[in-house]
């Protein structure tokens, strides 16, 4: 709020109106004022910068995880035609196995359901 009220133009006018002995004092005040302003903004800047680093880091880490740590064998310079290493294939099969889940086959669903008792009921 103070910063918007205190314009550079005002500073120049004030600077001009003071004698030399006061000029340094005004200048020091101006510098200190602007430093304070930056300091108040620092936490916000820190949060934004660290968030950006975190997101970029996450993307990079994710990409590295998806790639293989083993040596990539390039069959030619075309990026879309890269051969998979044995390690990559093992990882790929591991992924497939995690998708396969035989526990989904539930045998007792029907037998375990409690039933509506109507057989022996009469009005």
């Amino acid at each position: 709020m103070q910063n918007s009220e205190y314009k550079t133009e005002d500073f120049i006018n004030a600077y001009k109106s003071f004698n030399n002995s006061k000029k340094n004092e005004v200048f020091n005040y101006y510098t200190k004022y602007n430093q304070t302003d930056i300091v108040t903004k620092l936490p916000a800047i820190f949060v934004i910068v660290s968030s950006v680093i975190f997101v970029i880091g996450g993307i990079v880490a994710f990409t590295i995880t998806q790639n293989n740590t083993g040596t990539m064998i390039e069959s030619n310079t075309n990026q879309s035609n890269i051969a998979m290493t044995k390690d990559e294939k093992v990882k790929s099969v591991k992924l497939n196995l995690s998708k396969y889940n035989n526990s989904n086959t539930r045998v007792n669903d029907f037998e375990n359901t409690p039933r509506i008792e109507l057989a022996s009921f009469e009005f």
Binding site: F62, T63, Q66, N67, N68, Q79, S80, I82, M84, E88, L95, K99
Partner: peptide, 14 residues
Amino acid sequence: MNTKIKYILPLALI
């Protein structure tokens, strides 16, 4: 690994 698969596979898993 094919570049497209690299992004499509995790998405498919999610």
